[in-house]
Computed example of a mutant assay.
Amino acid sequence: MRLAILDDDINSIKAARGAILRYPQVEFLDYFTKPEDLFENLYKYDGIFLDIELGQDNGFEIAQKIIDTDSQMQLVFLTGHASYAIDGYDFNPVNFLTKPINEKKLKRTIEQLEEKIDDIEEDAQIMFRMKKGYEIINVKDIDYIERRNRKNYLMYKGKEERISNYSMKELLDMLEKYGFFMCHQSFIVSLKKIENIIDEGNQRYILKLEDCKELIPVSRNKKDELEKKLEKMYRNKI
């Protein structure tokens, strides 16, 4: 899971980060003290730990803006006063955590977050600009994206479609939160579709994907990062 904290108290952030990062389900955890900085990066995250009392900013107003921007974003409210919880139920948060964070409640919250995010990813769709117009694609059907001859091609459900007017970075920004990884400057792959990492010697590695004939190259400087992501992903499922 890719999470962030928004809190104006750096000591509270440190305490929350220390507790949340104990869970291997958390791929990374960013933090922000200003709402505008969070909104610049909101697309990166699956869930937000949001302090209700944000100095001059109202946490519930920020929550509404988050939901208006991304209706599937999962929220966990942080507060020093349990009485605030009543006003927050309209936002359908995963949970309310009072400071200091209770370890048992946090454990359950992380489990609930994982369940909700898994359900969202299963049904996630993205609209791509294709050669003949726009098309909505189920994320779970995407195998990989290849950049070839200055053009990008989407491989899904056994077919290839050219997608228009995107850089590889833009495509990675769209897909990374759903478990995609740029293993090579010309390839973005679904980590869930990887069956095997093949060592060809001389530090050359290729990927075998489910139901794909083409083998995908892995850059030397990406191999260790890829292995760590796969180890973490499958360790969480045990």
Rank of each mutant, 00 (worst) to 15 (best):
E36G: 00
I20W: 14
T98Y: 08
I62G: 08
L106W: 02
M174N: 09
N236F: 15
C212W: 00
R17P: 03
E161P: 01
Q64C: 09
L113I: 04
E36Q: 11
L97D: 05
K131R: 15
Y23Q: 10
E115D: 14
R162H: 11
C212V: 05
I142N: 03
F128D: 04
L3N: 07
L215W: 13
Y144R: 04
K177F: 12
I238P: 00
I194W: 00
D37H: 12
E146W: 01
G158C: 06
L207W: 14
T98R: 05
R162Y: 12
E146Q: 04
L172Q: 12
S71W: 13
D141F: 07
F96V: 09
E27Q: 12
M130Q: 12
K151S: 14
I188W: 08
K44R: 14
I86V: 15
I66F: 13
F180N: 07
G88S: 08
K229G: 01
E121K: 06
K232S: 10
I206C: 06
I13D: 01
D224V: 13
R129L: 13
I62K: 01
C183I: 10
F49S: 00
I66S: 00
Y84F: 05
K65Q: 14
S219W: 15
R150L: 13
F91M: 08
F49V: 05
E160Y: 07
I198C: 03
S219C: 08
L50G: 01
T109R: 08
D51H: 06
K228R: 14
R204E: 09
K229P: 06
V139D: 01
M174R: 10
R162Q: 12
M233Q: 13
Y31R: 01
I110T: 03
D224P: 05
L215Q: 15
T79N: 04
L29D: 07
I10A: 07
P24N: 11
K44H: 15
Q25W: 08
S167M: 07
R204W: 05
A124C: 02
K116Y: 03
D68S: 14
Y45W: 14
Q74W: 04
Q74D: 09
C212A: 03
G179I: 01
E200D: 07
E61I: 05
L6C: 01
R147Q: 05
D118P: 04
L42N: 11
Y31H: 01
Y144T: 00
L172I: 04
M127Y: 07
Y89R: 11
P93S: 11
L78N: 00
E170K: 11
Q112N: 13
F128W: 06
D123A: 03
I142E: 02
P217Y: 12
I110K: 05
D90I: 12
L191M: 06
S219E: 13
E195R: 02
D224I: 11
E195H: 03
D173F: 15
F180T: 02
P35C: 13
E160D: 12
D118G: 08
F60A: 08
L230H: 06
E122T: 14
E161S: 07
Y234A: 02
R129P: 03
M1E: 04
Q25D: 09
F39A: 12
Q203G: 04
I110Y: 15
E135D: 11
M73C: 11
D9H: 00
Y23N: 09
E146S: 02
K104F: 14
K116E: 09
I120K: 04
I101C: 04
S12L: 04
